[in-house]
């Protein structure tokens, strides 16, 4: 029993944090909202270069041979930075699915950054993120996973409150899809929920840091609003949510990487997503309330993370849905 990250994990996390700090500023995110493809120029290539996209591919396939324990740490940083790319979909779900299926002609460009892969799982609902700008979609079809080329897709755009999520309803001709033999739908769904939970924790951390900074600066009645107990307690509650959801995310990452029992694995993932969704919901509410009117504006950057929080909290199952899955694992469903 040793519940901590290795130095290697920490160093990788630090590298990725620096990449995001340098290349994915709030300004870059806003620019991506205005662009046709919704991407941050250059970021994908850098993520490929430092190995992020290849984290979960085996070394013999040209990857880093790491597992979910490493990837959740990076996705937490992606949440913190508000990265508008389909990074979780690509690196945490699509890459290992392509790898296990031995689809090297599809995997190689995904690792090198030559392609972007998104996901269409039933557990993610009808709205597929970044389907128009992706080169490939890993889709759930007849209880298995298939890979669909961009040319074989019909996409219908939908708006999201979160401009970092370009949503599309998609359809495709199943005969034009590549079957991914050996890629497990339930495992993909667990990875997606886990990766989303990790991002939720990162978003919550960002909202907390931003708000702590704001209430320390902002003065009313002659002193920082952060001196008032009502404000302090809001933010202490946010910290509590983060403190007790992050270890569940790390624990679930370990389960996905090491546990052969899919019921226990699913239970651990759902516990993590339920807590992380609740934590980020709480963070969004408190951050907005503690900012007051300025936080309610489009101009102020807080909205970037509020919207990430709102969308990711519900993505791949909200807290209630995941608690239902835990209820099932605990024998509490009829």
């Amino acid at each position: 029993m040793h519940f901590s990250f290795t130095e290697e994990h920490d160093m990788f996390r630090d590298t990725v944090r620096e990449v995001f700090a340098g290349e994915c500023s709030a300004e870059a995110i806003r620019t991506s909202w205005e662009s046709d493809d919704g991407r941050v120029p250059g970021l994908w290539a850098t993520l490929a270069e430092v190995g992020v996209l290849a984290t979960m591919a085996p070394t013999e396939a040209g990857g880093l041979g790491m597992d979910e324990v490493a990837s959740v740490r990076l996705l937490e940083e992606a949440g913190y930075a508000g990265v508008p790319e389909p990074l979780m979909e690509h690196m945490a779900v699509a890459v290992p699915a392509l790898a296990v299926a031995g689809a090297s002609e599809l995997l190689d460009p995904a690792l090198s950054g030559g392609s972007t892969v998104t996901l269409a799982l039933a557990s993610g609902g009808p709205n597929v993120v970044a389907a128009a700008s992706a080169d490939l979609v890993i889709a759930e079809h007849s209880e298995s996973l298939v890979a669909v080329d961009a040319e074989a897709l019909t996409v219908t755009p939908k708006d999201s409150i979160d401009q970092s999520r370009r949503l599309f309803e998609i359809s495709f001709d199943p005969d034009a899809a590549h079957p991914l033999a050996g890629a497990d739908v339930a495992l993909a769904a667990d990875r997606a929920a886990l990766g989303t939970a990790a991002q939720c924790v990162g978003v919550a951390r960002r909202l907390l840091d931003t708000t702590v900074e704001y209430v320390t600066e902002r003065r009313q009645f002659g002193k920082p609003v952060g001196t008032y107990q009502a404000v302090k307690h809001h933010l202490a509650n946010v910290r509590l949510g983060i403190e007790f959801s992050a270890p569940l995310v790390y624990r679930a990452a370990w389960s996905v990487a090491h546990c052969d029992d899919s019921v226990l694995r699913g239970r651990d993932v759902s516990m993590a997503k339920a807590m992380a969704s609740d934590a980020v919901d709480r963070a969004c509410r408190a951050a907005l309330q503690c900012h007051g009117a300025i936080g309610y504006t489009f101009e102020y950057d807080l909205q970037i993370w509020l919207k990430r929080g709102w969308s990711l909290s519900g993505a791949y199952g909200d807290a209630r849905q995941h608690r239902d899955r835990v209820a099932d694992a605990l024998g509490l469903l009829p």
Binding site: L208, V212, V215, T216, K223, P224, G226, T227, V231, K232, H233, L235, A236, R239, L240
Partner: peptide
């Protein structure tokens, strides 16, 4: 928590 963990002003 607010003052010593988050560093909010006293």
């Amino acid at each position: 928590i607010a003052e010593r963990v988050l560093g909010l002003p006293r």
